[in-house]
């Protein structure tokens, strides 16, 4: 193709398009860009806030094993005062932790209660439908589903209308290398408690692997109503 042919084709191409012009003005383009920039900044800000919030939640409700060990002589614990519908956790001036929970709701936010207790400096692991022991732990339970030594770290009493229970946890009384294990009965297991929440508490290893079973401890229940068939009866006869 000769140069003149090329020029002809290019002229034809250029001539194939009439004069055109954008309807949008420069102001409109600039305004659109500004709006989009603003949205981006807001989105970035929202993302940043979400990130910070997630970080804060991770600090507040982190996995117990990842949380700082401040219990049992591990150091001073800042005052914790968490009040939820299902439970409340309050650090007290004598180093103990006052905990109140609603027996009909506490299982619904088990993780939150666990995290709150840990934040208050009390080592605890909770499970639903599983009952665990660590290596070398004493697996025995009394008729109320309470293991040896639990009464030193956890004392309870009924409160309110009877559907609530108040506990005092004593972090400083926790034996070194131990934690409190609370195993709540699952819905199926609750059948043996006639639908009432029940649980097992024992001290277990805080570091070793836990061996768990889904077989609920046998329903022991003397005529006085204590034992796992009730809401439980922590030390000193308080029902859990």
């Amino acid at each position: 193709m000769s140069d003149s042919d090329t020029v002809d084709v290019i002229d034809a191409l250029n001539g194939s398009l009439g004069e055109v012009s954008m309807h949008a003005t420069a102001d409109e383009i600039v305004a659109a860009g500004r709006t989009r920039r603003r949205r981006r900044r807001l989105a970035s800000l929202a993302t940043g806030v979400a990130g910070v919030s997630a970080l804060a939640l991770a600090i507040t409700y982190g996995h117990p094993s990842a949380a700082p060990d401040t219990s049992a002589g591990g150091g001073a614990v800042a005052g914790v005062h968490i009040h939820e519908a299902a439970y409340s956790v309050d650090s007290q001036s004598d180093g103990t932790v006052l905990v109140r929970w609603d027996k009909s709701q506490y299982v619904t936010n088990r993780a939150g209660l666990e995290a709150a207790l840990h934040q208050a400096g009390f080592r605890v692991t909770t499970r639903i439908g599983e009952f665990c022991t660590g290596p070398g732990d004493d697996p025995s339970l009394n008729a109320a589903g309470i293991g040896p030594g639990v009464d030193k770290v956890m004392k309870g009493e009924p409160a309110g209308d009877g559907n609530q229970v108040t506990f005092v946890f004593t972090p400083s009384a926790m034996p070194a290398g131990k934690q409190l294990f609370i195993g709540y009965l699952s819905a199926d297991q609750l059948a043996v408690t006639h639908g009432r929440p029940g649980s097992v508490e024992r001290l277990v290893s805080a570091t070793g692997p836990l061996t768990c079973t889904t077989t609920a401890p046998p329903a022991a229940g003397p005529a006085d109503g204590s034992g796992t068939t009730d809401e439980g009866a922590p030390a000193k006869g308080a029902r859990k």
Partner: peptide, 27 residues
């Protein structure tokens, strides 16, 4: 607009595309 119009063949689409490109350029 002419260049984009030659490629896409539709005036409205071409204007939208060019406006979008200029907006991104401003950003």
């Amino acid at each position: 607009l002419r260049a984009v119009l030659a490629s896409v063949g539709d005036r409205e689409t071409a204007e939208d595309l060019v406006a979008e490109a200029f907006t991104r350029a401003w950003m």
